[in-house]
Design a protein around this nucleic acid. Structure first.
Lengths: 210, 210
DNA sequence: AGAGTCGCACGTACGGTGTACGTACGTCAA
DNA sequence: TTGACGTACGTACACCGTACGTGCGACTCT
């Protein structure tokens, strides 16, 4: 009956669509089936369970990262570009970001960025051990930043909506927070991200010179 | 009947206990009520809903951070200590960490660490704007690192259990990943964390000298 | 052509979830 | 004494993931 037959990619695509439209909480097998005009249990012919479906979502999103790696560029720029590429995809699927980040998948989709990053770092002159450590630091920073941007993360990074909690804080108990409230409240995610990225790159550049 | 009457703190404590014993997925109002030897709906006399209960969990965990701030110490050491204090509490409630980190709460419990951090940075000589930016970078790094340690986070940081996905990867497609597999697989979280922390602190120290 | 197999769509059903609502029973105030 | 009120609790509803069985179409092999 359906012009296109049911398939895992179609189901994953429907899930991504649903997440972007209504958030990750709206995802249910029933809901996805309804969106596809299909019985609930039909999904299980293509996907073993909900968890695997979400893995598929993460994998699909992750595989869409586009590296325009220029081997001739300075290694610092290449690292920067790779980090930005990672962030860009999260910006394209904002509500899927939490799903991607909070799910450890073992497909090759997640390995490609790692391979690229390690290659870049090693070509810059870092040893294997250093490269791995540095990669971990960058991933931690990127993941943490994305969580903030997506709006998930403790108070420290209030969303841009009028977050009165920060502004109405007791100036005597929290002089710094109170005084810096305007800066705490609004946040240019892009420039903040690049600021930290610059710090890290600068730090490892120093590290390299020894 | 219960020696101690039901109360919000008691419910939150039960939730924390349950999360640490059986993981965040095991949390349900019914289960918590059962653990407390109480009817399910009795909980709602003290907690408006499950989400608020989890906020309470995050708040409680967060409020147990112990800063032993030494105003005479070098500011770099103070920053380091605060970051480590944050990490330590996550280490103490490992399975609550995801709950804490993925929940933006607006109570003052989350503000105290922010206040301390901002004060430290400003006393080091940073301006308000810089202090906020730097704080955001540190938080991103810390949150990202904790997610990795807790075992939530994409492939990049495989857990120490035999993660065959990385070791059995095609050496031709992923030479770096394949060659560095041993280092990718096992990870001394503590030293990794301090490595990145050191990088960041060094970077902002450089920043300060201008 | 007939028979057999297989994949896929689907309905039903079970045990779980959060929580709205009504009720019953204490303890205090007037 | 009477009333109000806070608290504990049971019931009920809508929703969830998914195990299981059924039926139908297409394809393969004889």
């Amino acid at each position: 009956m359906p012009a296109e037959p049911l398939s895992r990619p179609r189901i994953v695509a429907a899930a991504i669509d649903l997440i972007e439209r209504e958030g990750a909480d709206a995802v249910s097998m029933r809901r996805i089936a309804a969106d596809l005009g299909v019985g609930v249990m039909s999904l299980y012919n293509h996907v073993p369970n909900k968890s695997a479906l979400l893995d598929g979502v993460a994998e699909t999103v992750l595989s869409q990262i586009e590296f325009s790696d220029d081997p001739d560029a300075d290694w610092t720029d290449r690292v920067r570009m790779q980090a930005l590429a990672f962030r860009q995809i999260a910006h394209h699927y904002p509500r899927c970001t939490m799903v991607v980040v909070s799910r450890q998948l073992q497909s090759t989709a997640g390995l490609l960025p790692v391979e690229r990053a390690l290659a870049t770092l090693r070509s810059a002159g870092f040893g294997g051990h250093e490269a791995v450590r540095i990669l971990r630091v960058f991933i931690a920073y990127i993941v943490g930043s994305l969580l903030r941007e997506v709006g998930v993360t403790p108070t420290f990074a209030p969303v841009h909506r009028s977050d009165l909690a920060v502004e109405n804080v007791d100036p005597l108990l929290f002089p710094q927070v109170s005084g810096l409230a305007p800066m705490l409240v609004d946040c240019d995610h892009e420039s903040e991200f690049e600021f930290g990225l610059g710090l890290l790159i600068q730090a490892i550049a120093v590290q390299l010179k020894r």
